[in-house]
Nucleic acid binder design. Structure first.
Lengths: 249, 249
DNA sequence: CGTAGCTTTGATGTAGGTCAAGAAATGTGG
DNA sequence: CCACATTTCTTGACCTACATCAAAGCTACG
């Protein structure tokens, strides 16, 4: 309220995340802030988007976590990724007009709807923003590939450790995590659905990591006791999160 | 040679594939054909693209198969997808300027290099082409997600059956497969690397499918004995391959 | 025609699944 | 602020799908 109506600092997780990738101008921030305007709440457990839907809009998460998943004919489900504040939900459904998985809030969520029109408008106003958003989309894809690698070739212990480290790195970008750990609203059952494990086994592995003095996940709080040790156990290489972005918009 | 220099029919696997998604004009075909000009051979087993490379060009496969994969610190590897004639290799490395996995020919391959410049040029000449190419990219992504689901939630038998059916559906689009089966240059070891299984186990599962009278994979030839039965076993739903494409370029 | 890669098969081991039940935590209504 | 309900966590006993290791037969190719 004090001073001119120009934003020079990130005022949302999204802005914060994109800033980590490229310097944004006051104008960029203003456009971002405008996009991120129309916030509304979503209840935990009620799908925000579902498979087959051809939607014209995407959501930007302001607070809370969601997960994207696919259901199998057999009834099981596979979580493809989690979304945290600053992440897009259904960005592909805008860029590609197709949604091939469901998205469900894990916690209560506030998110802003962004229509295709608004997004393209914003891109035209500041092409840098388009680049930044494509960078985010590309990073999301890289994460999916890394999850594929986890499911195909990593042991249960490696998977769990890897997930904790990935979430940590992502949350850090939006100021929701520090060196010691982070608040994690996931249930062990959700982690299992993401890691291709049963909740019982997730529980055992978590207990094991605790006993080994590597990390603790209790009462919705992840704490790293031996970060480097955990990295070693997971075979975690964060290159896939830090890649260079698209130069082409 | 005979008649005017205008192409009205697909003259490459890529053109054939895109045609299945949207009608293309003679002009579109000409542009495509031009893009697909500079063909060159790649030897089996020698990486075409590798991780970390920030390449300015992509390849379109004219003949042969490749696989994209990631290596783990532990030495194992996870194949993310196979590419068949008509597919792009490293399209993301053009669109996003980053390559986060390696690509290796599975067989001898001929492919045309397409530079970023040529691609964007082509897009400007015929925006329909841009749409079609984005459709292909989006389909690739959907496949990666489906592979993730396989690794996370399907049994070995389901995975193998699913892979055979996916390859069949994809090859069909480019005329390399018919109702009865297709030529498959993959080794069981490669299939294992894609499916998160050992080659021994792939072998046993393949034997099992054979004994059950569902499908045979021998001497580089996949033959379906009971297609519907195989679909049932795999829980195969080809929706992810047939999705509507991007309306936005 | 020998050697290297691929397939096939067998014997044995184990990571993680399944099923079940009790303990904690969390939430809800009064 | 407490009683009750619900979800989540934890643990145990048992089981199975797939891995591991090993070796033999097959192709194919230089």
């Amino acid at each position: 309220m004090a001073g001119p109506n120009i934003r020079t600092l990130p005022d949302s997780p999204l802005a914060q995340k994109l800033t980590a990738f490229m310097a944004l101008s006051a104008g960029d921030f203003a456009v971002l802030s405008n996009i991120h305007r129309r916030r509304r709440p979503f209840a935990a457990g009620v799908d925000m988007v579902h498979q087959g839907q051809t939607n014209q809009s995407t959501y930007v998460i302001a607070s809370g976590w969601t997960c994207s998943y696919k259901l199998l004919p057999s009834g099981g489900r596979q979580i493809v990724d989690f979304q945290i504040p600053g992440d897009f939900v259904g960005l592909r459904s805008v860029l590609f007009r197709t949604m091939d998985h469901n998205v469900q809030p894990v916690t209560a969520v506030t998110a802003s709807e962004v229509t295709e029109h608004e997004l393209l408008d914003a891109f035209q106003q500041t092409p840098r923003l388009a680049t930044a958003v494509l960078w985010a989309a590309s990073r999301d894809e890289a994460m999916v590939v890394e999850h594929l690698v986890s499911l195909g070739r990593r042991s249960a212990r490696e998977r769990v450790a890897h997930l904790l480290l990935e979430l940590h790195a992502r949350l850090r970008l939006v100021g929701l995590s520090d060196k010691s750990g982070f608040a994690c609203p996931l249930s062990q059952s959700l982690m299992g659905d993401a890691l291709g494990l049963t909740k019982s086994h997730v529980n055992r592995v978590l207990g094991d990591l605790r006993k080994r003095g590597l990390a603790t996940f209790q009462n919705g709080q992840v704490t790293f006791e031996d970060y480097d040790g955990l990295v070693a156990v997971a075979g975690f290489d964060r290159a896939y999160l830090d890649h260079e972005g698209p130069l082409l918009a």
